[in-house]
Simulated scan of single mutants.
Amino acid sequence: MATSFNPSEIWQPFGAFSMLKIQGVGQIVHLKGQVSLDKEGQVVGKNDMPAQVRKTLENIQAVLASVGGTMAEIISLTQYATDIQKFMAAGEIRKQFFAEPFPVTTTVEVVRLYHPDLLIEITATAEIPHDRFRRP
């Protein structure tokens, strides 16, 4: 049976979603798509794709850390960008969060996200080793 979790280290859900979904006994985790919001739910980096990519990846990092995981354990990412060229130009930021072997990645350009100031949303699936995994 899968369980859901919303870590207190980041902004809290305002709709019908969880920040993290845990499947099975705890190794595979499914993260809700993260965006560039601070802990109070305010947009970080309005009109600034690099700033939004950084904050979004920091949010993913915080969600994973809350259950004992790291960015190295991410298996796959799905990225939704409102401007694919600006997103691709911010690729160096990803290298600050990921090393080889990189996660599998799908990137899709979308017309807009749920808030007009958001430029990027990224969701992830990770596998955290049992010896480090902490169930909330």
Rank of each mutant, 00 (worst) to 15 (best):
M1C: 04
A2R: 09
T3P: 00
T3I: 15
S4C: 09
N6L: 03
N6M: 08
E9M: 10
I10E: 06
I10D: 06
Q12P: 05
F14Y: 11
G15Q: 13
F17V: 12
S18V: 10
M19F: 07
L20V: 08
K21T: 15
K21M: 12
I22N: 00
G24V: 13
G26Y: 03
Q27T: 13
H30F: 11
L31Y: 02
L31V: 09
L31G: 03
G33S: 13
V35W: 00
V35L: 03
D38A: 03
E40F: 00
G41T: 08
G41K: 00
G41P: 02
Q42W: 02
Q42D: 07
V43G: 03
V43D: 05
V43W: 02
G45H: 05
G45V: 08
K46T: 13
K46C: 04
N47I: 11
N47E: 14
D48Q: 08
M49L: 06
Q52G: 02
V53F: 01
V53Q: 03
V53M: 05
T56C: 06
E58N: 06
N59S: 04
V63L: 04
V63H: 01
A65N: 04
S66R: 04
V67C: 03
G68C: 02
T70S: 05
A72Y: 01
A72M: 08
I75K: 09
L77K: 06
Q79N: 14
Y80T: 11
D83K: 10
I84Q: 12
I84R: 12
Q85R: 14
K86L: 15
K86D: 15
F87A: 13
G91A: 15
E92V: 14
F97N: 07
A99Q: 15
A99N: 12
P101T: 12
P101F: 05
V108E: 10
E109H: 06
E109N: 08
V111C: 06
V111P: 00
R112C: 10
L113P: 02
L113E: 03
L113Y: 00
Y114T: 09
P116M: 07
P116N: 06
D117K: 02
D117S: 09
L119G: 03
I120P: 01
I120V: 15
I122A: 03
T125H: 05
E127A: 14
E127R: 13
I128N: 01
H130V: 14
F133H: 10
R134V: 14
R134G: 02
R134T: 13
R134D: 07
R135S: 09
R135F: 09
P136G: 08
